[in-house]
Write a protein that binds this DNA or RNA. Sequence first.
RNA 1: GGGCGCGUAGCUCAAUUGGAUAGAGCAUCAGCCUUCUAAGCUGAGGGUUGCUGGUUCGAUUCCAGCCGCGCCUACCA
Length: 520
Amino acid sequence: MGHLRNAILGYTFVRLLRSAGTHVDVQNYIDNTGVHAADVVVGFTRLQKNSKAEIEKLIRQPRFDYLCWDVYTRVSQWYEQDKTNLQVRLDSLHAIEQGGNEAAEIGELISTAVLRRHLETMLRLDIEYDFLPRESEILHLHFWEAAFALLKEKGVVTLVTEGKNKGCWVMKRSSSSEAADDEENQKVIVRSNETVTYVGKDIAYHLWKFGLLGRDFGYRKFFKYPDGHEVWISAEQGEAQHPHFGGVSAIYNVIDSRQADPQNNVIEAIRALGYEEQARHYHHFSYEMVALTPRCAAGLGYQLSPEDEQKSYIEVSGRKGFGVKADDLIDTLIAASQREVESRHPELSQQECTAIAAAIAIGALRYFMLKYTKASVIAFDVKDALSFEGETGPYAQYACVRALNIFRKAGIDPEKALAEEINYDQFLAGEEGNEIWELWLAASKLGYTVDQCIATTEPAYLAKYAFQLAQLFNNFYHKHHILTETDEARKKFLLATTAVVRRELVRALALMGIAVPAVM
RNA sequence: GGGCGCGUAGCUCAAUUGGAUAGAGCAUCAGCCUUCUAAGCUGAGGGUUGCUGGUUCGAUUCCAGCCGCGCCUACCA
């Protein structure tokens, strides 16, 4: 679910930027090294005692990522049971880092399979990436060495000769205003065993993003989306022909708020290297986590402590196997909307029903993830997410369907209705005219809303806007029965009003990735 | 201890960057389908915007101090 909020927020912002004429590359950082990767390898090889051949078979199962989720949970418990098991993790970690052995091959196999599953899940939401930079290439192509040389040269990192951080290269922690003499204010970039920390790798990655590193990835085609769009992945040995990534003028990192501190450290490092301009265009697009309400967690069968039951939300945990999987949530939403569509439209074919149900389910999910401002923790409740009434995606979709139905029954093209010659002064005058004028005014504010969303990096304003416009329209729809209007001039005016509102509402929804079905 | 963020109706959230009587949805209650689809509409109840001060013609918004909650504060990523 966290991934859903991340991707939906991020990709909506991409659409907003692109609609404003900005060229945007969408990247997804693939964290395929480190303890997570090592743990999953340990799970398959030690706990499940799977051979490489068996794992090759397993990754072809439909939802291999679900298996990984379970294995990951079991491994975490296995470590908990007996701390000496942690030595196995360490061995796995070292083997993967060294490469050229079976553990490394299995790690590669699994992480690539999970990545493919991730792309498939995101594709259900029409979210596509352009480039997938992997941490393994950042290490193997020596991005860090290049960055380290720059950081040392400018004195951004210094070697600590005594104290608890002895032997480490550290930088001043961004959140402290004090000098870096105090250990509390030191952020370790290179460990005493000479390995680099996550922040160090991220500094190198971001120098590359800005085109300041002097090195580049190799690029390989990874996956072709059904629409023909190709997503590229980093590689040590790339293809000769490839698009150009990196060297950008601005960065929006869609990362949850818990990583504010490391993000700020990266920004500080870039600033300290003398790249003030780039530092100012480095945006941490920060959002809060998705948690579960105690009621929802209990409903999913999790045992709660009395303490947890009192909280308004409970943080999910992959290690505890505690959470809701994206594909399950999407499946549940589609099933619920499918039942509804079938009961409303028995005349439609199974295929048509499924397509409509998918559009409604995705609309509900996307709207749900966008209606909250980024700084708000989403206390997820299945009941709320499954609701198709009130402030939801389907509510706005429904308003569009109603509008289009009027034109369908009247046999009129909405665009033609707008081109008609209409005496607006006459119909917009007076008390009743004021109400309809408000509708026109609201319809005209999409561009302003988009600008505001971009300036504040807050897509929730767009969601609010769409809902309010839909609400005004439903009001108007109820009050004025258009097809039975006997005054032809007035009828044209009402049709034009409907057409303009529908057009802007469809646009607003499209920016959020919400499609409007033909009927619902 | 330090850093960041939050506190608004029973619940979940808004409030267009300091403007008019603080608004929505859910939930509760009362109505509206022979009509362009009721996934809708109308109405009712529900508020000392955590507390105390300050700045201002005006504060949910800005400032200070308290109280409460969350996250971060790893030689994890």
